[in-house]
Design a protein around this nucleic acid. Structure first.
Lengths: 108, 108
DNA sequence: AATTTGCGTAACTCATAAGTTACATATATA
DNA sequence: TATATATGTAACTTATGAGTTACGCAAATT
């Protein structure tokens, strides 16, 4: 059984998967209806869905033979936290700059 | 001339590059001092630096024969915007839920 | 002037992600 | 019941990213 377990960063590195996430932000869709938006084959989309599901970016609701894909927040959280760390970095860097500017102005 | 031009999402997909960014958030470092933190060779780190530089994640200050790498915000912005879009999605989804709950409570 | 240090790059190997086609299976429809 | 539909998966090919070693060059050191 081939494992397609990629981490959150690898998952969104693929443009097709980002496109899928974008489409799902407009509406929840089945595999086939998703595939209509791409040049690639339906099995290719199916694989991407598996990857997105395993990484917690989507949940799936089976209705008869159809698989409805719904956006899920879990997968995004690791990314958010990662960016928040650097946001804090820029924030603190800004603060240091402010301190520097204040020092300068008081010395005048 | 080989081109190593990856988009911001591909850039952060590599764990080594994320580690480099993390190290640079603590202190600006040269190629060699960065390489000391990794099992891989110095040329490998050099390549990653090139990728990070091309994508706007770092700036470089040459001092003599040393290259000092400094974190740069530009590369992060595309990622921030991408996540903000989905943050808005979760926000609006929450709003819809609130509306639903309100409707329910008023019907009581 | 000779040597060491810090780095870039070319050429190569290797792993693997991403696509394909072909087939199997379950559910809906006629 | 026969057929069409919606999907998963195995087997395969291919492109390419990530690592290596070997080399060259400029700046610092002796």
């Amino acid at each position: 059984m081939e494992q397609h377990r990629l981490d959150a960063f690898q998952v969104i590195a693929d443009p097709s998967r980002r496109q899928i996430l974008h489409l799902l932000s407009k509406d929840s869709l089945t595999i086939n209806s998703l595939a209509e938006n791409f040049d690639m084959s339906r099995p290719a989309v199916s694989k991407h869905i598996k990857v997105l599901y395993n990484a917690g970016f989507i949940s799936i609701q089976d209705i008869g033979r159809e698989r409805h894909c719904i956006l899920k927040q879990d997968g995004f959280k690791e990314l958010q936290q990662w960016l928040e760390y650097f946001d804090a970095f820029w924030g603190s860097k800004l603060k240091k700059l402010e301190v520097l500017l204040n020092e300068k102005s008081t010395k005048k």
